[in-house]
Design a protein around this nucleic acid. Structure first.
Lengths: 327, 327
DNA sequence: CGATAGCGGCCACTTCCTGACCTCAATGAC
DNA sequence: GTCATTGAGGTCAGGAAGTGGCCGCTATCG
């Protein structure tokens, strides 16, 4: 541990956990002379990390944001937060970052000691499922296991539930993970069927890396995403919702915020556009706006809203008959 | 860049991005002889990172999970995923990890180059806000800014909207962030009022670190969390919702997931309990369950649901008169 | 003005790093 | 079994680097 490189790393870690450090404190903690500390700081600067220094009484060192990201030194708790946050990000809460979230997640998981993995498993029970889409929840463990197999070029075994519900055991050479819409797909070469296949991750269970490595084959498609797009002829039924709301656009925007786009149509009228997988969300939003509205489409939304309205009135009427209670 | 420590770091990063590496490939990438690579691997092992090796044809090196977390080397995309995931975690999606999520987030944000911060800002527009609680959304930037000021012991200026709506400018010595229930509080010494105060983060705006450092004072309480608990004598008006649902508990749980607790009352009956700030959320959930229900309390919820029902029926009736359109 | 703290040159000493060469031990293909 | 491949590790010599102590300099704050 009396190494130079380990000391550089420790210095970096110190600078990351507490921004401001007096020089003597640092040299003390690292067990070197002040002169050597200055040289270590120089070393960091040469490596591209911008360490700024303040002179005079109460001076010290400070790590400023630079051009490159330094290696992050995190403790156990932070690693767990990292893993859980990345898992949420990978589930598609924010469009466009799923792939990198999975990459980062595999990195973190891979180097994570078993004790931390156990703690994450314990926390999984309280994790928020993919409520933002009403799509099937993907098992985060499966996601990372498959991602690691892709990255490490290791053959993979899993059981797969086909569209008709039949379970089959698969043995594949994983090629790439693709996040399309709200779903994850694995593009892989099926060793039993001797052909390329795409698998929906939410239909896949018990992935286990076999440890057998392989030379990647050439995918007979431009791109893994193209392959998946071609494979899924039947797109999942999504709704394009359009509603005219009898309220100022600003008011509607305040409620809808980011879940849809609001176009102003006049003093007291606006158009609300959303693309969703389920109708609960638009129903709730137009309910929460608290103003009259007209449903332009889809007609399913009209039926959906009518059902809610019927049920809500029936229930509250029954409630009134029994005499409303106080809270 | 021809440094030993930087090479160690690069080696670690390579081992993190692609698990399996043949020796010659590694020594080639690092620009050293095979012998030196072996020595570098040894160095890593001495630092506690478990590098396992496979001999023979097609052998290579591989980083196994160890006792300590190695410094994470992430690229731009991954860093963004990290920041966004951590932001979600800090917003309280999973109970108990908020504090460490914020700590990790400040680390990441602090060392992040400005160009990445801009990209995160750009992504914020599509971020899912804290829907899981219907509480006010906390600005993630404010959260990290305040957390950094706490950590770095730097005085902080911000404007604060008191309970009565009045805006005041504050100048404080930040002490600690506390996550209580669904809210974040800042415990700080108010330099204008010369006393300790706790501030709700969702009422705080434009935090700006002044750069003035200070010696931390002793908080007149056991613990920052205790201080906040003592300070909030008047709890915010929250609703305790109780609803009897005529559906199996499992079905209700699938919809409600963790936003409330579901008690089984029989084959086809269960009780739903929630504590919320607004009534939109429970209204939406019982709507989405799709079954009949009885509202036990509060009576405001009955009124609320009745209003939704009335409006929904009025609107769909009007829609029918105009002739329902196809999607 | 004086105390504090970072900056950086110089120097001598020590440590370690490196590449080359060697033998040995696994491992998988033929 | 044989053989090529690949990692492990010892040794050695030359060179590169890290280290601590010394110095004078400058910036900053009270």
């Amino acid at each position: 541990m009396a190494n130079t490189s380990s000391r550089t790393l420790r210095l970096l870690s110190l600078l990351q956990t507490h921004r401001y450090w007096p020089g003597p404190e640092l040299s003390d903690r690292l067990g070197v002379s002040a002169r050597t500390l200055r040289r270590d700081i120089d070393r960091l600067r040469e490596l591209g990390y911008p360490v700024v220094a303040h002179r005079g009484v109460d001076g010290g060192y400070q790590l400023a944001p630079g051009a490159a990201l330094p290696p992050l030194v995190v403790d156990d708790e932070e690693a767990i937060a990292l893993a859980i946050g990345l898992r949420m990000a990978a589930q598609g809460a924010v469009a466009g970052i799923e792939e990198s979230a999975v990459r980062a997640l595999t990195k973190v998981i891979q180097v994570m000691p078993p004790r931390l993995r156990r703690r994450i498993d314990a926390l999984r029970t309280v994790t928020v499922p993919a409520a933002w889409g009403a799509g099937p929840t993907i098992d985060a463990d499966a996601l990372t296991a498959v991602a690691q197999a892709c990255r490490d070029e290791e053959r993979l075994r899993f059981s797969y539930r086909a569209r008709d519900g039949e379970l089959t055991a698969r043995h594949v050479e994983p090629h790439r993970l693709v996040s399309l819409g709200r779903r994850w797909y694995l593009v892989a070469y099926d060793l039993t069927r001797h052909d390329w296949r795409s698998f929906r991750l939410d239909r896949l269970a018990d992935p286990g890396s076999t440890g057998e490595r392989f030379r990647p084959r050439d995918l007979p498609a431009e791109d893994a995403a193209d392959f998946v797009r071609a494979a899924i002829s039947s797109m999942p039924a999504a709704y394009d919702v359009e509603v005219l709301v009898h309220a100022p656009a600003a008011k509607v925007r305040a409620v809808v915020s980011r879940w849809g786009t609001v176009e102003e149509l006049g003093e007291d009228r606006c158009r609300l556009l959303m693309t969703v997988d389920g109708l609960e969300w638009p129903a709730m939003l137009i309910g929460a706006v608290g103003a009259d509205f007209e449903i332009v489409g889809p007609s399913e939304l009209t039926d959906f809203v009518r059902e809610w309205g019927t049920r809500f009135l029936r229930v509250t009427a029954a409630d009134d008959r029994r005499g409303s209670r106080t809270s």
